[in-house]
Amino acid sequence: MEKASAHPLAEALHPPTSTGEDHRKVLMWLFLASDVLFFGSLIGTFVVYAQRVPHTPLAEVFNIPLTTWSAFVLLMSSVTMALAVWAAHSGKMRLMRFYLLATVLLGIHFLADQGFEFYHFVHDGFTPRTNPMASAFFTLTGFHGAHVTVGVLWLLSLFLASFRGGITQRNAIWVEIAGLYWHFVDVVWIVIFAVVYLIGASFW
């Protein structure tokens, strides 16, 4: 049997698994299934309150062009992430680093857009304390932003680790599972964009 590589990120020796799949990949999918429930409850609460609570029409609160741009940015970050995963699996480490960095920068751009958006909301008197719908909105999008932040930090760490030979084709699974997380966070935003922003500003 081979010895475990000296670099700590190198794949720990895995005996054969019952499914043939890596433990960490199974773990990430289980985590994502669980996170669906977390965001589902937040979205459900928002929808309930958006319909019931007296509040300023969302069409007057939201900036659809800005939000469309940031949603697009996040979508494109999923593209770069998918390319990073492909590059890692293909052994093209420099290309992987490029795409990882691109994803990080797009993610930071998304967060900056959100920060800008929140700043203006608060400035206009739309805060988490304004009414229950607002509380739900800020909590939902805030936790999503926190998920993006965690993702940015994670991808940044992978980017940095890859410089010392930490990421190789052999342990590309690390990039793959980070990618799964990142795509999930994007997918949640796809739902939020449709339900909270588009439907919200059209009807509530």
């Binding site: 794949e11 895995h14 054969p16 698994t17 019952s18 043939g20 799949e21 890596d22 593209v79 998918a82 390319l83 492909w86 699996h89 293909s90 052994g91 084709q169 052999r170 342990n171 590309a172 699974i173």
Partner: peptide, 19 residues
């Protein structure tokens, strides 16, 4: 049962599909 992380997964979504 197979070894995980055996062959690199180049047969999955490549640059063209991503685009």
């Amino acid at each position: 049962m197979s070894q995980p992380n055996g062959t690199p997964e180049v047969h999955k979504a490549g640059p063209k599909t991503c685009a």
